[in-house]
Deep mutational scan, measured.
Amino acid sequence: MSIQHFRVALIPFFAAFCLPVFAHPETLVKVKDAEDQLGARVGYIELDLNSGKILESFRPEERFPMMSTFKVLLCGAVLSRVDAGQEQLGRRIHYSQNDLVEYSPVTEKHLTDGMTVRELCSAAITMSDNTAANLLLTTIGGPKELTAFLHNMGDHVTRLDRWEPELNEAIPNDERDTTMPAAMATTLRKLLTGELLTLASRQQLIDWMEADKVAGPLLRSALPAGWFIADKSGAGERGSRGIIAALGPDGKPSRIVVIYTTGSQATMDERNRQIAEIGASLIKHW
Rank of each mutant, 00 (worst) to 15 (best):
A280H: 09
R91L: 08
I171F: 15
A40V: 06
S221R: 08
V82S: 07
L135N: 11
I171S: 15
R176P: 08
P65Y: 03
A235V: 07
F228P: 00
Q86C: 03
F64A: 01
G76C: 09
T126A: 08
L196Y: 11
I244H: 00
S57I: 08
S201R: 11
G154W: 05
V78S: 06
D113T: 05
I45V: 09
P181E: 00
V78H: 15
T131S: 13
Q204P: 03
T261S: 13
K53Q: 13
T178A: 04
W286V: 03
L197V: 03
V257M: 07
S221F: 04
T198H: 08
I171V: 15
G242S: 13
A200C: 15
T107V: 14
N98T: 09
M153G: 04
L218T: 07
E61W: 09
L205M: 04
G85P: 02
G39C: 10
V101N: 12
S96G: 09
R91E: 14
T193Y: 11
S122V: 09
K109G: 13
S68D: 00
T147M: 06
L79T: 03
E175R: 08
R159V: 10
E61S: 09
G141W: 07
L120K: 00
W286A: 02
K71H: 01
L282Q: 14
M209V: 01
H156A: 10
Q274V: 05
M153V: 04
P65H: 07
I256A: 08
I259L: 09
L136Q: 02
T116S: 07
L205T: 04
D207S: 10
S264K: 05
L167W: 00
T138L: 15
A200F: 13
L191I: 08
Q204W: 04
I93W: 12
L74Y: 01
E210V: 10
R91V: 05
K32A: 10
D48I: 08
L218H: 03
K109C: 13
A246Q: 15
G216H: 09
L38A: 09
L146Y: 04
V82L: 08
E175S: 12
E195Y: 04
E169T: 08
R91Y: 12
I125F: 02
E35N: 09
P105F: 13
K190G: 11
S68W: 01
H94I: 06
E56S: 05
I244D: 00
S254Y: 04
S104W: 02
L89F: 06
L79E: 02
Y44K: 00
G251R: 13
T139W: 12
E164M: 00
I125R: 01
L89C: 06
I206R: 05
L137Q: 04
R241G: 08
M180R: 11
Y95T: 05
P217I: 05
E145H: 12
Q88N: 12
Q203L: 04
W208I: 04
D48C: 10
A40N: 03
L100F: 03
W208P: 01
C121V: 05
E56A: 04
D207H: 05
F149L: 15
G279Q: 03
W286G: 02
D207G: 10
T158Q: 01
A215T: 15
K284I: 15
R271G: 13
P249C: 05
T187K: 02
G226D: 08
A124N: 05
R59W: 12
T261F: 10
S240K: 01
K144W: 07
S264P: 04
L223A: 10
L120G: 02
E26D: 14
K284P: 06
M268A: 12
T178M: 03
L219A: 04
L191A: 14
I275M: 13
R92M: 14
W227A: 03
I171M: 15
L47R: 06
E164V: 00
Y44P: 00
P105S: 08
L38C: 11
P60M: 11
L223D: 02
E108G: 13
R220N: 04
M153N: 06
Q37E: 05
A215Y: 15
N50V: 07
D269R: 11
V117I: 14
T131L: 09
V42K: 00
V31T: 08
N130I: 01
R91N: 11
K32Y: 09
V31H: 00
L160V: 07
P181K: 01
T193A: 14
M268V: 11
A84T: 13
P143D: 03
G239F: 02
G263C: 11
V258T: 05
I206K: 12
A185F: 00
K32M: 08
D33H: 06
D99I: 04
I45C: 14
N134P: 01
R91P: 01
L188K: 00
E119H: 14
L150C: 14
T69D: 01
V72N: 00
D113M: 04
S68I: 02
D99C: 08
S104C: 10
Y95D: 01
L247N: 01
E102C: 06
A124Y: 01
A40S: 05
D99L: 11
V72M: 15
L74M: 11
I243P: 00
E195V: 03
M268S: 12
G141L: 10
G236M: 02
S264A: 09
G248S: 09
A225D: 13
A215D: 02
A183W: 13
Q88C: 06
Y44N: 00
T186N: 15
P181Y: 01
I45H: 09
T193K: 15
V157D: 11
F70T: 07
N168K: 02
Q97F: 10
Y95F: 08
W227D: 00
T126L: 06
A148L: 09
R176E: 07
H151C: 05
R220G: 09
A246K: 14
V42F: 07
S254V: 06
I206E: 05
L282V: 13
V214P: 14
L49W: 13
T187D: 15
E237G: 12
L197Y: 04
G39V: 11
G114H: 09
D250K: 04
A230R: 02
Q204H: 09
A266C: 13
L136R: 00
K30S: 06
T267V: 08
H110S: 13
N173G: 07
E169W: 07
K144G: 06
L28Q: 09
N50K: 14
R238G: 08
V258I: 06
I140V: 12
G142L: 02
D83H: 09
R241M: 08
L73H: 04
M66L: 13
G234V: 01
I275Y: 10
A230E: 00
M184T: 03
E26A: 13
H94N: 04
T261N: 09
S51R: 08
R59F: 03
I206W: 03
Q86V: 11
E145G: 11
Y260R: 00
A215C: 13
E62R: 05
R202H: 08
F58Y: 11
T267F: 11
A276I: 05
T261D: 03
P165G: 11
E87R: 03
D99W: 14
D269H: 14
D231R: 10
V82R: 07
P224V: 07
N98K: 09
M180Q: 13
E277H: 10
L196T: 11
P249H: 09
R271C: 14
K32R: 08
R159Q: 10
K32D: 03
D33L: 07
L137I: 12
I275P: 01
T138H: 15
S221G: 07
T186A: 13
L135M: 14
G52Q: 11
L74Q: 03
T69E: 02
E87K: 04
H110Y: 15
F64W: 03
H110G: 13
L135R: 11
A34K: 05
D269Y: 06
R189M: 12
P25K: 13
T69L: 03
N134W: 02
A266V: 05
Q37K: 06
A132I: 00
V31S: 04
E108V: 13
L223R: 08
N272F: 02
T112H: 13
A133R: 01
G242H: 02
G263I: 08
A34G: 06
L219T: 04
R202T: 13
N134S: 05
D129N: 01
Q203T: 03
T27W: 02
P172M: 11
L100T: 08
T147S: 07
M268W: 11
